[in-house]
Structures are given as structure tokens and as C-alpha cells.
Amino acid sequence: MTLPQEMPRLYGDGVVLRPFEDCDAGMVMTVASDPLIPLITTVPTSGTHNDALAYIERQRSRLAANTGYSFAIADAATDRAVGQIGLWIGDIDQGHASTGYWIAPQERGVGRARAALSVLTDWALGLDAVARIQLYVEPWNVASWRTAEACGYEREGLLRSWQQVGDEREDMYSYSILPKRR
């Protein structure tokens, strides 16, 4: 079971999932002050251009490190980055992948997360190595779990004290999606 060794460009409803580019540093800098994104991702809290470029370089290195595919979510009309989504393959030898996503605060509420998750999910479920995609969402994050459900993910349960978020252990809803049976 092989996975693509190069980052694809994936096209969806008004979005393009593409490799990160240096010009995306401004968008990364805008989310540094978000109250959640830097706590659950590697987005730097400093908001400096150099730290944003270091974040972008980490995203570019994910595939070479065999940890996954990190995509910039870009507006299809302008190619301007508005967020990030990844397919993480640490357990791919078991057929398991996971995903997570974020949208810059000023870009939320117009369906980009749903469009990005939909296109990523369709692509990933088409890979022979992927038998299951998992997704974890904080119970209070209604927009995120509605996005998952709109893309066909099913809630499997509540994982108590699942993830460290800042100084606290947080519960997470567990979601998954499986390829359609033939």
C-alpha cells in the first residue's frame, strides 16, 4: 500500500488545497493571536514573519518526515490562503489516518472548512492505504463538529480528558468516516 510521495493540489467547492507557500506567512501571522489555534497546533503565538515562515517550513516537511500531508486551504478564485487542513498518517500501517483543520477567524462562516474537509476526505478515502479517517473535535466547537457531520463523519463517542490544550486536559468528540462499501 503506497501513498503519494508528492503533495497534490486538490480542488473543491470554492477552495484549493495546496502546499504552503512563503506568501502564506501573513495569514499564519493573523492566527497567532487566536485563542485556540496556537494551543492545539504548531502555529506560533509570536506573530512574527520569521516564526510564520518557520511554521510554513514545518508544514512543507511533513510529507518527507512521513507524518502526513499539510495543506494550505486557499480561496479558489484568488489562491489566497485562509486556513490549514492535514491528513496525518502516523498509524497508516493499520489503515488509520486522521485529519484536523482550522480557518483564520476573519475567513470563517462561509463554508470553507466544509469544502476543504469534503475534498480532503474524498481524496484520502480513494487511497488504498486508508481504511478509516479519524477526527477529534472539542464538544463546545459546534461549528467544527457540524462541519464533520456535513461531510459524512459519524460521531463515535466522547473521549474524556483526551488532549492537552494549553494548561488543561480537554474532552474530545471522536468522529470517523470509512470508505463506502462496494
Rank of each mutant, 00 (worst) to 15 (best):
A113L: 08
T48K: 02
R108G: 04
C23S: 15
P44D: 12
S61M: 10
D171T: 05
R160D: 08
G166A: 06
A74G: 08
D34W: 07
M172F: 12
L53P: 01
I40E: 13
V137S: 08
I89V: 13
S33Y: 02
Y136D: 08
H96V: 15
V28Q: 04
T99H: 10
A129I: 06
A115R: 03
A116I: 14
L53N: 07
L3D: 03
L127C: 11
R146L: 00
Y175R: 00
C151T: 01
G12R: 04
I40A: 06
A25D: 05
E107K: 13
S33K: 12
A72N: 04
R155Y: 02
L17H: 03
V142L: 07
G47R: 02
E154V: 03
P8E: 09
L63N: 00
L87M: 08
R60K: 15
Q106S: 14
G86T: 09
K180Q: 15
G47T: 03
D34C: 09
I56N: 05
W123G: 15
P38D: 05
S161H: 11
F20P: 02
V15K: 05
C151N: 01
D22Q: 08
D171G: 01
R108D: 08
L39P: 01
F71A: 05
R132Y: 00
A115Q: 04
A74D: 01
Q5D: 12
R160A: 11
R155P: 02
N66P: 00
D75N: 13
L10V: 06
I73W: 02
R114A: 12
T45E: 15
P105W: 06
W88C: 13
Q163N: 09
V137N: 06
I56K: 01
E168W: 04
V31M: 07
R62G: 08
G86N: 15
L125S: 10
R58L: 14
E149A: 11
D128A: 13
M7L: 06
L10E: 03
W145E: 01
A115D: 09
A32P: 09
N66D: 04
A25C: 04
A104L: 10
R181Y: 03
P44Q: 10
L135R: 00
I103Q: 09
P105Q: 14
T121W: 04
A77S: 15
Y136H: 15
A104G: 14
D75C: 11
V15A: 07
R169Y: 04
G152C: 02
S33F: 06
L10P: 07
K180M: 15
P139R: 05
V142G: 03
P105C: 10
I85S: 13
I73P: 03
D34A: 13
T78C: 10
G152K: 00
D75L: 14
A131F: 01
R146I: 00
R182V: 06
V165M: 12
M27I: 06
W102H: 05
R18E: 01
R62K: 09
D22V: 04
D122C: 07
D91F: 10
C23H: 11
E6Q: 11
S161N: 12
Q164N: 05
T121C: 14
Y173T: 07
V165F: 08
L178H: 05
C23G: 09
R160V: 12
